[in-house]
Design a protein around this nucleic acid. Structure first.
Lengths: 339, 339
DNA sequence: CTGAAAGCGCTTACAG
DNA sequence: CTGAAAGCGCTTACAG
């Protein structure tokens, strides 16, 4: 049963012995290089797989200077943004045989330093830095490392390679859809103004709507969505027929508040969210139409990019903005997109 | 600026040369073993840190048969359960210099196999298997691996080392608190009966309440919470004054439904959840009192346990149940616990 | 066509 | 007290 885990590992010596060749020949046979008889090569390979040989990546890495390992550094404890990014990274890299160290460093510089050093000691081929907002950097300096660094959904150095969502385009998508649903008085309820993405979305919103309605800044919570609706609907004057919310939580709060006032969503008012945070968006009544930042795709690209850098392939520097995608559910009307 | 990441790595040869000793002496000095003059040892150490020497973990691992790396395997894509477990594992192991590979394998056996092999190739010191429910195992056989395996919040082999939450005790905690709040007619709304933890919690609930009220099985969603409340309150007869919900989503649905019926929580009815899923529990109006499964602690213990196994220290086999903790917010009355 | 040797960056007996 | 040598498991020139 071997529960403690102590089966002796099979090395290339075992393969060589079993196949009756030298270890150099065994190595070359397995790696498809060197010249030798096809029969020899085949025999070595067959024997290797029969006895269950798997090359020791540590030994390989020592020679090749490649560990087939990268590190993902994040300060997003809750994992709301990091998880999709991580999924994309892993998915893109698993085919290339690279594994991913996940390091959650909170906002602790000392912890960050420890993790970076541990990763470097383990000879990672590269590092992906990710976080919870685009305009903050991790609490650790990644600028002079002996391995390539790619930033994804977090602020990087000016001359680095960064990936982020195109928040302006996402906001346009939202406003466009609302107009397409026939909405004319669209109000924007959003988060704190010191978030770069808040400003970017708000600007795009103003540009798209002509800036007739004020933007309501608040916090990223359901209760702010509630409060904003209360504020708008208790004030005199014409009411909006569309609400573009800065995230799904605000949207959910708004939808709940509208329902409590007897206002029908989407018949009377269309509400659109941002983030496509499944757990919030799908459980809202009605389920939220929202903008997805495609973080998994972002992770995938970041993964492929560190890999390229690690292999010395040329990569253009600068920040790359990835387009957002509209996910249609029921809070705006229109036909739900198949997911 | 070295953006590509190509600074030459400093080896023990550099240290030896700079300190004017042999590499054996350098090695012994840095590892605090071997005998040598204190001055020599100090000098080597000083030089090493001056030139920024960090030992190559791959080379070390080759000798020591320890990679200071473990793998965390999960099929919980959304990360709701895995993230806290991961946080605990990492927190427990970072002090020991071990890093964690995160492998999300969905429910794909082939993907699972690939990840396990990749981890083994990289000589992980052990593997922690985790998932999204206690009575399902990962879609990959971990029983005959050359490294120790620990199961956390997923079904393991009978003779393995497993950690799980004590759901019965958690349910008792919930019922007890409800009684303490003066509730006498407590109904249990929960998830699908084929979940082991559902049955365990339901049994504990029945035992604690005397089994006078039926258990309402459903699904893990807000809408089921809604529907259950509608069903109970539209039926004739005496109504409950306490609702023990199988998870926070059901609890949230129930709270919302009660509010819509004009029933006050917690004045008229106390509602308690399960999971302490922050995003749901804290945003409910009023915020949910709930049972926390202490998954982070579970992760911490699992981490320490693989480490022990990897180092050959004796570890008792079997499944260990960790106690749950009550988190008091406002949905039951009583004083909120400081978090 | 195949193998002996050197070496990746370390550690650890073993000499001196 | 210090260093030369062997070796961890591989790969890669280089001989033959």
């Amino acid at each position: 049963m071997n529960i403690g885990g102590s089966r002796k590992r099979i090395t290339i010596h075992d393969v060589a012995a079993a196949a009756g060749v030298s270890i150099s020949t065994a190595s070359k046979a397995l790696n498809n290089n060197g010249r030798m008889g096809d029969d020899t090569r085949e025999r070595v390979k067959r024997v290797a797989s029969e006895i269950g040989f798997r090359p020791n990546a540590l030994a390989r890495g020592l020679l090749s200077k490649r560990s087939f390992t990268i590190g993902l550094l994040t300060n997003d404890t809750y994992g709301r943004f990091t998880l999709p990014v991580m999924a994309g990274v892993a998915e893109a890299l698993v085919d290339h045989g690279v594994s991913v160290f996940l390091c959650a460093i909170e906002d602790d510089p000392a912890l960050g330093q420890i993790h970076v050093e541990a990763m470097l000691d383990k000879q990672v081929d590269g590092i992906i830095a990710t976080g919870k907002r685009i305009d903050r950097s991790l609490p650790v300096d990644l600028s002079n490392l002996p391995v390539p660094v790619v930033y994804a959904f977090t602020e990087g150095r000016p001359d680095s390679v960064s990936f982020r969502s195109d928040d302006a385009q996402g906001a346009e998508l939202a406003v466009e859809w609302l107009s397409r649903m026939g909405r004319r008085r669209i109000v924007h309820l959003t988060g704190p103004q010191d978030f770069f993405s808040v400003r970017e979305r708000a600007d795009a919103y103003s540009k798209a709507t002509g800036g007739m309605e004020p933007v309501l800044y608040g916090v990223w919570s359901e209760s702010w969505g509630h409060e904003a609706v209360a504020r708008i609907w208790s004030a005199p004057g014409e009411k909006p027929d569309g609400l573009f919310c800065g995230n799904d939580q605000i949207a959910r709060g708004a939808v709940d508040a509208l329902r409590e006032r007897g206002i029908k969503v989407p018949q009377d008012v269309s509400v659109i969210g941002f983030d496509n945070w499944e757990i919030v968006a799908a459980q809202t009544r009605p389920p939220l139409t929202t903008v997805d930042m495609e973080l998994k795709e972002l992770g995938r690209q970041a993964g492929l990019t560190v890999l390229a850098l690690a292999e010395g392939r040329p990569v253009e520097r600068g920040v790359r903005k990835l387009p957002c995608r509209l996910v249609v559910r029921q809070s705006c009307g229109g036909k739900p997109s198949e997911e």
